[in-house]
């Protein structure tokens, strides 16, 4: 998914002020950038087609609102970036710190923690012996 600069600004505005028509969005963005009403209308249309906005007709104008909140959009983007891990390492172009495993249960995690604790105690003992 690609978002242009104007589309990002429109999304930011609609997260803060839902249910706005094109004139309201244009007026709000006019303080930051020079964009015509048509350009803003096109950006709203693109976001709608990308499934990021929903709209309701009120009179002659559409009222737009963000269909996905910021949190979910970021989660979706992380998935687009890191999603290739799902293919068991094939084509993975990101390097994640860790990836959750549905095969690794709590007991196995407890066992790993015990191993780490045993190693810590072993190290501490060796250190005390040296001292």
């Amino acid at each position: 998914m690609f978002l242009g600069e104007l589309e990002k600004q429109v999304l930011q505005y609609l997260w803060a002020s839902p249910d706005a028509d094109v004139k309201q969005v244009h007026a709000a963005l006019a303080t930051h950038r020079e964009s015509s009403l048509n350009t803003v209308q096109s950006a709203l249309e693109r976001l709608f087609k990308k499934g990021l906005l929903s709209r309701d007709k009120k009179g002659y104008a559409y009222l737009y609102r963000a269909k996905i909140d910021r949190e979910h959009l970021i989660a979706k983007l992380i998935d687009s970036v890191a999603g290739d891990f799902i293919g068991q390492g094939e084509n993975s172009l990101v390097a994640a710190f860790s990836s959750v495993s549905n095969e690794l249960d709590e007991a196995q995690l407890d066992h790993l923690e015990q191993l780490i604790e045993v190693q810590r105690q072993h190290l501490q003992k060796s250190k005390n012996n040296v001292d």
Partner: peptide
């Protein structure tokens, strides 16, 4: 991550084998 994946079906949490962490 396991706690989060149990709470919600979050697409941003990826999966690979248990052996890797171990």
């Amino acid at each position: 991550q396991k706690g989060m994946s149990a709470q919600v079906d979050n697409p941003a949490l990826s999966y690979f084998g248990a052996d890797n962490i171990t």
